[in-house]
């Protein structure tokens, strides 16, 4: 296998924005699954996942066990990278650019600056333009999404409430982002500055969304998706692909469920196919009522 890049023998050449957003484009229409070891990664790939997220603990375990959640161990990420041929993503703590530099040196394919891990900086996110590896970031509303894009995120995902097995927050966030974008398309040019001010987002990006009605990068959904029907729901609400975290490997039947979520995600507009996907399923992960989660235990409020 060649060790030479598509850019020739030199590694430090222009790797522009299109290449980062381009990889996000390639993942559209797919399912990205959280995995904690090589065995799970292989199950995910076989089930038709378009990428895997390498983690030490899935969000529901992080929620249960508490403590500081950090970037996964290099050994685990390496094993997962060696086990599958699809892109491998890994998470870093919000603002922890040193962890991100390690993942870039390791050559993971995508970095998730994630609220699921314990934030390393309570004011600033990573300046993602400095990296050659693309980043994905979570968002609950349009302002947050556009701030992350301005910092260099090449993909946005809803935050939802990770590890809850409850899709309600992912739905709330997707509906919020989509309706805020729709609103922008109805405004006059001279009304956009006020929106930029209220959303806390750069004016040029606000203007761009006002013109196109969509984010300038792919818009995926994450956080609480546990069943094929959940995947179909967020796709119908505007998500271009889905992340499934604890939902697969915390269920009673990971192999079957992984395949079923992939099927429903592809045929998200075809209820018969989603019915078929549900036919064989066992018990889903046990979910949490969001109102029973203490305010301080919510993961979605992390990120600024």
């Amino acid at each position: 296998m060649t060790t030479k890049g598509a850019n020739g023998s030199e590694k430090n050449v222009t790797n522009d924005w299109r290449v980062k957003v381009g990889l996000a484009e390639m993942l559209k229409g797919g399912v990205i699954m959280d995995v904690t070891d090589a065995k799970q990664a292989v199950i995910a790939e076989k089930a038709g996942a378009c990428a895997v997220m390498a983690l030490e603990r899935v969000p529901s375990d992080i929620r249960k066990e508490g403590g500081v959640a950090r970037m996964a161990s290099i050994k685990i990420i390496r094993e997962i990278m060696g086990a599958v041929s699809i892109p491998v993503m890994a998470k870093v703590r919000i603002g922890h650019f040193a962890e991100a530099e390690i993942l870039q040196a390791l050559e993971v394919d995508f970095i998730d600056e994630s609220e699921v891990l314990t934030p390393a900086d309570e004011e600033n996110h990573i300046w993602k333009h400095d990296f050659r590896i693309p980043f994905v970031c979570g968002a609950r509303n349009l302002g947050e999404a556009l701030r992350r894009i301005a910092e260099g995120a090449a993909m946005i995902r809803t935050k939802g409430e990770a590890g809850s097995g409850n899709v309600v927050e992912a739905v709330r966030h997707m509906r919020t982002i989509v309706s805020q974008m729709r609103k922008l398309t109805t405004l006059r040019e001279d009304e956009l500055m006020k929106e930029a001010k209220e959303l806390g987002a750069p004016l040029d990006l606000i203007r761009q969304v006002a013109k196109t009605g969509k984010l300038p990068v792919p818009n995926f959904s994450a956080g609480g998706i546990a069943t094929p029907a959940d995947a179909a729901l967020v796709r119908r609400l505007g998500a271009e692909a889905v992340f499934v975290g604890s939902g697969i490997f915390k269920s009673s039947d990971p192999e079957v469920r992984a395949k079923a979520v992939v099927k429903a995600n592809t045929h998200f507009e075809d209820p018969k196919a989603i019915l078929e996907a549900h036919e064989e399923l066992g018990e889903a992960m046990r979910g949490l009522d969001i109102r029973q989660i203490d305010e301080k235990d919510l993961l979605q409020t992390r990120g600024w």
Partner: peptide, 29 residues
């Protein structure tokens, strides 16, 4: 993935039979 993982992805240009100028090419994994 003959050119390597994402970090090796790039926009380059190369010869194309119907063009006198180089053709722009986006390689992603």
């Amino acid at each position: 993935n003959g050119y390597g993982r994402q970090i090796w992805s790039a926009v380059v240009s190369g010869h194309c039979v119907w063009k006198s100028e180089p053709l722009e090419m986006v390689f992603i994994r």
